[in-house]
Every structure is written in structure tokens, then in C-alpha cells.
Nucleic acid binder design. Structure first.
Lengths: 379, 379
DNA sequence: ATTATTACCTGAATCGATTCAGATGATAAC
DNA sequence: GTTATCATCTGAATCGATTCAGGTAATAAT
């Protein structure tokens, strides 16, 4: 099998029509040879295929076929951040896995679309590169992961008018939009985490938050900043922490310091822990909105010579693979990453198959108690 | 912004031509309004855009545009296995991350293509579903990960005649094919792992191998099976182990037992360890071709009440995130996952930009000694 | 022997844009 | 006053297939 690579980049590409002409048959016959073998005699089919091979015809052009057929058999998976950042988090892979589990055997293929690359402060350029990709991508439908309610990429995606499933997006003001959605019990999960340490007698908290808005700098977040949040998942988790803490009769402002991180990475978790532990009074429990952040906190705390959980308890969120192997193993709130993908895939598939009813599923979270949390130290 | 979702699925889709007609201008003008704003007066452009909005025109159809332009701005990432399995391994995400780092800001988007789904023993169906997807996917080029030399999906991909970068594929018989490639020092890496334990006085080895052929069942592998391997990476790593061991003056057949796993998962690693430790004489060092497998082995060994590394040393391969947090932290051979992706992306980009020269880069491996390996026990 | 059926093949319309060589009229240059 | 330049806009060709309503000849049915 010798194929000249790059051969079809040039103008001189061999097309179906060339094969037809060479053989003196109609183009439709050649097409049938590939798509409906039963529509022509085996003999003719063979010679079509042979001629194709001889001429260097590489088979029907997928783009042309898609145009004519009106489908691409591709599902777009859209993330708010660049893919290079998104896949920094191991749970992105789990989610992909879940989607694949549902759509792969239906012949769908997965297109990864990332958000703004290099977003200089210049929102000047009317045609943002990122917007462009969400607009120009060839897919039959979208699975959109966790955008701020007002994200431009989200708008661009919606504008395509294709079937959509939203993931981890808690609709607030706008009310019931025209899409299916998959999310988890974010508020409950956060409450589970907070209650866990509250029950252990903790009363001074350091909270490591995920990003609150698209333009985020890491640092302690004031109440104002907490209120101005546009990332819905962050918002709801924070609310969960807060409600649990207030319900225990504590004052939010004085008993909890909130540190907002710019990236969901262990490194940011370390910075956050450093900042939070420098507060007075010093928190005895760290509540992190992700395991990545929690793991970083763990690293920092241990490096400071403090003991987990004797001096400080740490509770994460996600239960990513690896958290169980941390030392100490991380107490965390488990969410079903793969299942989330599966549900998203299933819901989108339903729409692609013409089902017009929109569904919304909310998956449960579960507190997984491991070694990183314990009773508050006696002061 | 209210958009009727699914509106463009039906026949009644609004097209560029509709907008042109409504406004009494040429289709090319409408096209220009979107693609070359400088080619028409701002006033007209505005009314085109407004009319489009009013009519519900969703913008130029990406597929039609691709057909005309001849590019898709999409890169296909092809894996030999289903995506649902591929993304079970955290290093898949790292690789994606690396590719994205290079191609994302060039406006390319990433299409994930998985291998055979549900490969019943029936190779009967002439049109395998998997083959179909590799053939029908709309991309400008491929990055192909680690196929058996004779994989049909590989052939299908090659047949497309598009630019290709092969990853982790050690070309053997065929010699220099027409593609760029990225790989790592697999043999050297394996030697590093083996030498490490050899230097610690070990002389009885259990080797946990990755798949050797597409149709694999887990179990101990005879010398014959070892010879009939088609997965090149596995082959070369095994050779590395073997050469190091033989170079130390030991006999391969009697001093090393090889267990072939069907999946690269911790669960398989446990099975493998169980089988290998049941051998007589019992191995004192386990060499695993991946950290996933090594981690499973670790689990099994500890569950048996044995100590790592006092009773058994374990050395992995990959240095995946998390291996450092294992207990004990895993000694392993590090390979640069993200860099591999970056190089693959860069090489493909070069081809897409018309560079016809093909390059091949080989990245280094590095032994990372941590707690899971130590001196051989005194017998 | 006549009609119905079947197997095989063709032509033309279509999918939805992009592109490029002009046409047109207006403005600038000399 | 005539030609050159410029900014706008148009028409037709094209990208590469798929689809479907027939057409033709051969076979089967009555």
C-alpha cells in the first residue's frame, strides 16, 4: 500500500468524478460502489474499486459527504478554558471516558474545543479567536462544560442552534433554557464537607475556592467578590459551605476566610494554604473545592511541619484518582465523573436522534472520609 | 438572544442565499460580510448582519466552508483502543495537554478517534465500524498513537493520504515510512529499570507486560508469545529488560517470568502480581511496563502482608501523576508525556504548513528512584 | 405472448458556502 | 476634460460528493 501523503492537499486531487470518467460510468455509480454495494453488480463494483486504487482515489471526501448528508457524526466537547489547561486536571479524562462510553459505539467521534487562548486584556478584537472556533467547528451537537453564565464562548456555542447538553452549569436568572443538563449536588456536597469538620468541632475555616469569574487573580476574596461571582459551580459550592457553617451558629465573615485560586492546580492550592494559615485566628480546617487544590494544601501544610489531621484537617472535593493515595489519604466529596459523562452523552444522543424532550439529571455526591480529617485540636 | 435549537436540523434551514435574496444583494456580498468586512461598506455590512439576525441565519455553515476552503482546522488524534478505555489512563490526558499546547493557539481543534469498539471475533463484516470512523473523519492531519505494525485502523488512517505523525511507534521491518514520528527511549528506559534492581542484587524477576498483540488475554507469556509480538512499544521495552538481565549474566528464561496483561489498569496489575509471586522461585523484583500496572502490583503485594521494598521491589514505567503519592512512592522510569504531545503537535503543524521534510524525535527517559525499590532480601 | 418484476445503471438536482475576475460609478490626478 | 484609481458590489464557477426519480434490458409470472 503505497500512498503519496499530502497528495490530496494539492489541487490535483483525484475525485469520484475522475474515477467515473475513467471507467465511463456515472458518478452516482461510483458513489454507490462505496455506499451501497447492493446497488450495482459485484463485477462493476470490483472494477470501480480497482480503478479507484489505480488512479489513487482515496475514497469519498468526508467533508463533501457531510455537507450533502447534513451530519458529521461528531460531538463537540466545549470547555471554557484552553485544552492545555483543562487536561491538566485528571478528571477531564474521566469525563471524556464517560462520554465515550455512550457515544463511541454509536459511531460518534469526539471533538475537543477549548476556550480563550491568550486572552490579553484586549477584548478589542471583534473576532476573538476562541469565539471563532466555537462558531466554525463541524459537529452535530455540543456538550458544554461549566461556563460562567455570561461567557462569550457559551453564547457563541448556543448561537449555533445545535442540540446541547450543559454540564455543571446551574441555571440561575435565565430560568429554563432550551437544553438538557447534567449536574451534581454541588450544594449538598459542600454541606457534607463542611458538616463533617463541624461535627469534629472545628470552628475556624480556610476555604480554597475555584475561580469565581473568568478574569481571576488568586488571593483572598472579600465578601463583595464572593457576591459578584459568575461561575455557578463555585458559587453554589461556596453557598453550601456557608449555609452549613451558619447553620451551626457561626458567623461566616469571622469564622471563614476564602481564598480564590486562578487555576485548579496543586501549586495554587499551596499558595492558598499559605495565605489561609497566615490568618488569625489560624484555621483548623481547610475546605477545598477540588482535590487538586486540597492536595496542594496538604503539601504545604506538611512542609510547614504541621500534622494532618492533628493540627489541620483538609477536605477536598471530586475524589479524583490519586486522592486515595495521598498521605494522609484525602477526605473528600466524591462526585461520579464517569457517570456525568455517560449521562451527558446519553442526553445528547437522545436529542440527536430526534427526541425533542429536554431532560435534566442531577447526580449525587458522597462524603468519603479518609485520613486527612479529624477532631479539631484542643487550643 | 433567543435561538430555536435544532432549527438547522430541519430542511427549512436559513442559508446565506436566503439572506442575500431578502436583501437583494449577491450571495458573495453576504459571504464577504462575514469573512472580509473590508470588502463592503460598513453600512451594507450592518444591514446584512441585521437581516441575518432577523431571518435567523446562524452564520456560514462550517461544513460547506470546509469543503470550499479545503481545510478543516482539525487534527485527528487516533488511538488503537476505544476512547472509553484509552482515557482510563491518566497519561492520555497529559498527552492531549501537550498537543493542545502547540496546536490550540494556531486555531486547530482536536478530534478524538478511538479504535475498534466491540470487536467480536467476527472479522467478517467487511466494513468494520472502527475502520469506518478513521476513514470518514474530517481532519487536516493525524497524530496516531502506538499501533501494532499491522493494525487495520492504522492502515485506514494511512490510506487517507493526510499528514501524519506517529507516536510511540517503533518502525521495524518496513523501514522509513512517509511520516514524522515521536517516541521515547523505550529500550533504554527498560534497561534503566532493570539495571536499577540488578544493582540492588536482585536476580529473580517478575515482569508485568503491556499487551503484546491486539488480541490479548492476560496470563503468563511463553517465549513463543514473547516472540510473536506485534505491539512495538511492548516489544522494545521487553527487549530492554531482557538485555539488561542477560548482560548481568543471568538466564532470561529461568530468571524472569513474564505476565502479559490485557488492559493497562491497576486491577490487571494485581492479577499479574498474584500470578508472578506464585512462581518458584519467587521473584524479588517486579518490573512493570506502566505505573498503572505497578500500582496494582503494589496493592496486591501489600495485601499479601509482604513489605515493599523489603520483600519485593517494584519498578514502574511512565511516572504518571500519582505515582509519587503511592505508598511507598513508586520508583519508576519517567517519560515526558506532555513533551511528547508538544513534539507531535509541532511536527504535524510543520507538515500542515507545507513543510515536506519529515522529522523523527526521540525523547529521553529517566529513572526516578523512590521508595518502592531496594536491596534484594537475604535469602 | 403480454405484462410485471427485478437488477442495474444514469442524470440532474442539491448540500451551503467561497472565490475571483470583472462591472460600475465615483473620486482623484494631471 | 480625460484618464487613472479606488471602493463596492456582482456572477458564475467550484469544492466533492449523495440522492432519487426514472430508464433499459433481462427475467419471471400469467
Amino acid at each position: 500500500m503505497t500512498v503519496k501523503r499530502g497528495a490530496n492537499k494539492t489541487k490535483g486531487r483525484v475525485t469520484l468524478k475522475d474515477v467515473a470518467r475513467e471507467l465511463g460510468v456515472a458518478a452516482s455509480t461510483v458513489s454507490n460502489a462505496y455506499n451501497r454495494p447492493d446497488q450495482l453488480s459485484p463485477a462493476l463494483r470490483d472494477s470501480v474499486l480497482q480503478t479507484a486504487e489505480r488512479l489513487g482515489y482515496l475514497g469519498p471526501d468526508p467533508t463533501a459527504r457531510s455537507l450533502r448528508r447534513g451530519v458529521t457524526n461528531t460531538i463537540g466537547l466545549v470547555y471554557p478554558s484552553p485544552l492545555s489547561y483543562t487536561f491538566t486536571d485528571p478528571i477531564a479524562g474521566l469525563f471524556v471516558q464517560g462520554i465515550a462510553l455512550e457515544v463511541e459505539r454509536q459511531g460518534y467521534t469526539l471533538l475537543l474545543v477549548g476556550g480563550e487562548v491568550d486572552d490579553d486584556v484586549s477584548a478589542q478584537r471583534s473576532t476573538k479567536p476562541t469565539l471563532a472556533t466555537a462558531t466554525t467547528v463541524q459537529v452535530d451537537g455540543f456538550i458544554v462544560h461549566c461556563f460562567a453564565s455570561d461567557d462569550p464562548v457559551l453564547e457563541a456555542t448556543l448561537t449555533r442552534g445545535l442540540p446541547i447538553v450543559m454540564v455543571d452549569h446551574h441555571i440561575d436568572q435565565h430560568g429554563n433554557e432550551a437544553f438538557s443538563s447534567v449536574k451534581i449536588e454541588d450544594e449538598l456536597g459542600a454541606k457534607q464537607a463542611a458538616n463533617h469538620v463541624l461535627e469534629h468541632g472545628h470552628s475556624q475555616f480556610g476555604i480554597i475556592s475555584l475561580e469565581m469569574t473568568p478574569k481571576t487573580r488568586s488571593g483572598l476574596a472579600t465578601l463583595d467578590q464572593q457576591a459578584a461571582m459568575t461561575y455557578t459551580t463555585t458559587k453554589i459550592r461556596l453557598e453550601g459551605y456557608r449555609r452549613a457553617i451558619e447553620r451551626a451558629g457561626l458567623d461566616w465573615e469571622t469564622s471563614a476566610a476564602v481564598y480564590e485560586t486562578a487555576d485548579n492546580t496543586p501549586a495554587e492550592g499551596e499558595l492558598a494554604a499559605a495565605s489561609l494559615l497566615a490568618q488569625t485566628p489560624q484555621p483548623t480546617a481547610i475546605l477545598a473545592m477540588s482535590d487538586q487544590l486540597a492536595l496542594g494544601a496538604l503539601t504545604y501544610i506538611k512542609r510547614q511541619g504541621l500534622d494532618v489531621p492533628a493540627d489541620v484537617s483538609v477536605v477536598g472535593f471530586d475524589d479524583m484518582p490519586g486522592s486515595i493515595h495521598a498521605s494522609p489519604p484525602l477526605t473528600t466529596v466524591r462526585q461520579p465523573h464517569v457517570d456525568k459523562g455517560k449521562h451527558a452523552g446519553k442526553l445528547l444522543l437522545a436529542q440527536l436522534q430526534g427526541d425533542t424532550s429536554l431532560a435534566s439529571v442531577t447526580l449525587p455526591t458522597k462524603l468519603i472520609v479518609r485520613g486527612s480529617s479529624g477532631p479539631a485540636p484542643q487550643s
